[in-house]
């Protein structure tokens, strides 16, 4: 049975379709790895022209020593309690001027979230990983409060809103007016709980 004719030509017409199908599949499923991290603004080096007087009760002081121990407002606390303590401080509403807060209205703690400042100070020998954990907890405290407020007002968490707002694709998919609306929402929440996290210069050891 010698093959006289050989195989018939394989139709290659659908090959391109298959190739495109695969291409689209990989395009959709692969994500390009982007770096992520904690965003922070450093204070400008020139001191402000006018000295602002801040009441001591409006400052929540967090100190990290070189062994990674925490001192929050003169009490030694565990790292895992820091977030709750920070929330308590920010949401305190001491003078009753904040109608969206749910704090205890302790007159010894912050007056209003817009006035509350968290001051973070660390030692030169503090380990970076400890520092990042503390930063993460403090940012987490802000985010928790912002999420609560955003859920109440807009039925979505602040983290979602902000991620949408920062995503460059949102502008095209939403359209101009809705994008402006989103921007206004993000700004509004940021106004209600402004992130006032001051990082003073590090003190030297001992």
């Amino acid at each position: 049975m010698a093959r006289r004719g050989g195989a018939p030509e394989v139709s290659a017409g659908s090959m391109a379709d298959i190739a495109f199908l695969l291409l689209i599949f990989f395009l959709v499923t692969t994500t390009i790895e982007t770096d992520a991290g904690l965003d922070r603004m450093l204070p400008p080096i020139e001191p402000p022209d006018t000295d602002v007087i801040i009441k001591e009760r409006n400052i929540f002081q967090v100190l990290i020593n070189k062994n990674g121990q925490l001192l929050a407002d003169d009490n030694q606390i565990e790292l895992k309690d820091l977030r709750a303590k920070a929330i308590e401080f920010l949401d305190n509403n001491g003078d009753g001027s904040c109608n969206y807060c749910q704090g205890k209205k302790d007159p010894e703690s912050s007056d209003n979230p817009t006035k509350a400042i968290i001051s973070l100070k660390n030692d030169r020998e503090t380990k970076y990983s400890t520092y990042i954990t503390v930063q993460n907890e403090l940012v987490g405290a802000y985010n928790e409060l912002r999420n609560r407020e955003a859920l109440k007002r807009y039925k979505r968490t602040f983290v979602e809103l902000e991620a949408d707002f920062l995503n460059p694709e949102t502008k095209e998919s939403l359209g101009e007016t809705e994008y402006e609306e989103l921007k206004a929402k993000v700004k509004k929440i940021q106004e209600l709980y402004p992130q006032k996290l001051s990082e003073a210069e590090t003190s030297s050891s001992n």
């Binding site: 450093l42 990042i132 954990t133």
Partner: peptide
């Protein structure tokens, strides 16, 4: 002034 402490994602307490 704009810095980003680049990190991985995960539970922050595992740093310790």
């Amino acid at each position: 002034l704009k810095v980003n402490y680049t990190t991985g994602s995960g539970d922050a307490f595992s740093n310790l």
